[in-house]
Design a binder for these strands. Sequence first.
DNA 1: TACCGTCTTCTACACGTGTAGAAGATCCGT
DNA 2: ACGGATCTTCTACACGTGTAGAAGACGGTA
Lengths: 133, 133
Amino acid sequence: MRFSDAEWIVMEALWRGGGPSSRERSSARDVIERLGKQPGWAYTTVKTMLTRLVEKGAVTEERKGNVATYRPKVSRLAARKSAVKSLVERAFGGAYGAFVHHLVEGGPLSDPERARLRKLLADDAQDADGDSK
Amino acid sequence: MRFSDAEWIVMEALWRGGGPSSRERSSARDVIERLGKQPGWAYTTVKTMLTRLVEKGAVTEERKGNVATYRPKVSRLAARKSAVKSLVERAFGGAYGAFVHHLVEGGPLSDPERARLRKLLADDAQDADGDSK
DNA sequence: TACCGTCTTCTACACGTGTAGAAGATCCGT
DNA sequence: ACGGATCTTCTACACGTGTAGAAGACGGTA
């Protein structure tokens, strides 16, 4: 499942959901309001995006009366996984090793981010690893 | 600088260069040969890609006689940085923190890759970090 | 019931991408 | 100088993406 830039934006609005539960269904109107003035899209633009997302199976559509509501069928996590995988394939020849190396070495991470990554890994390393010298 | 899937493939062939120095210029023919039968593209397909890459400023073109040779103007590192940045923007709302968190937690890294990442960071941590407990 | 606001569907268009054929330009060997 | 191999440019076309207008359908209020 690949999303275009605009599709990511719409999916994000759906994932944010309306209420506390991200299982909420959202109408096109909801999505637009949730987006605010950021993209400044016309109503029909959002509607088109939603329709296309339904077509590609990323979102489910239901009707209440003559109003359609939408809910993501693909989780944010799954979408992100897929996006990262896609990136690694395109830009790193599928080599996660090269990807990881890039992030740690020449990557665009700032020092704080690198430190954060390091810290997270350090925490993570406490279980299931006998390498942490 | 955004590259499409096919453009990544061509750029990769250019970056691989012909010889030991990656400053080599490559002809369209070189590129095709270097690609092998993987994509199975027609000569003109590659030529079109190269022309488009020149148009978008990612590659320089020069002529020797009636043969054009190409050389990447954008480095692999720069392209990768840009690709990662783009991914983080699209899929993580620009938050590198969320990105890093994703990689370490729910990310698509296998245990060996995670371990490798950890190791690289550990090595990296030897300088400029007073956090490594 | 007539109407307005809102929602939906249909249609459109320009640009990017993947893919390549047709035809003209050029070079090397005979 | 001629011909075949090769290179170049031009053109094309289908599908995806960003963006949205036009017009029809519907539901609630006066």
